[in-house]
Amino acid sequence: MSPMQTLFPNIDWAEIGQACIDTLLMLGGSLLFTVVLGLPLGIWLFLTARGQLHAKPKLYGVLSLVVNVLRSVPFIILMILLIPVTKAITGVSIGIRGAIVPLVIGAAPFLARLVETALREVDRGVIEASQAMGATTSQIVTRVLLPEARPGLIAGATVTAVALVGYTAMGGIVGAGGLGALAYQYGYNGYKPDYMLVTVALLVVLVQILQSLGDRLVTRYSRR
């Protein structure tokens, strides 16, 4: 017996490999759509808040409520509640594609709040100076707010990515597979502690990589 087999007698390494791929696919896909939805939603929240460039307190109230509701529903419940929606969008309610829809709907409002907070950190004086130069609101958003808030936005995306890693573990419920599902299925239900150890270790490594990548980008774009 090789040392690997001695240490981890139960593990099918091909299965672990497939689980890694599934997790990365779910993470990549859901992160992409989370940013596509969450960034504009966060900008919208920022602009419509009281005292901001396009203050619409009532619209802000509605947006804010929707965001809060989505953020307060436990992800596992959200996933089940969203099954019909998922089916309508992707045609299936299971597998990786089936998991991405609830992942995005769970994470986008979370990212939107982080985006809103990051944009609020931009010096009001800089916005005023841009207005004084005759910038339009869309120019202020694309050329002032987003570049000035870039470190905060990257930090927000990093936090969201790490949260998504946690959410993907629940992808197993809809048969999406991934490392989390493996840990639950074999490690916990199947009493195979080596599975638990390996899958959790791989998740830790993934989170570490995401966080240090994010931190590095934040440092690179910080000019203050």
Partner: peptide, 15 residues
């Protein structure tokens, strides 16, 4: 565009 403005705290784009 025809009126320039400068500020106490400069308000430059840090990025």
């Amino acid at each position: 565009g025809g009126i320039g403005m400068i500020f106490q705290h400069f308000n430059l784009l840090s990025s």
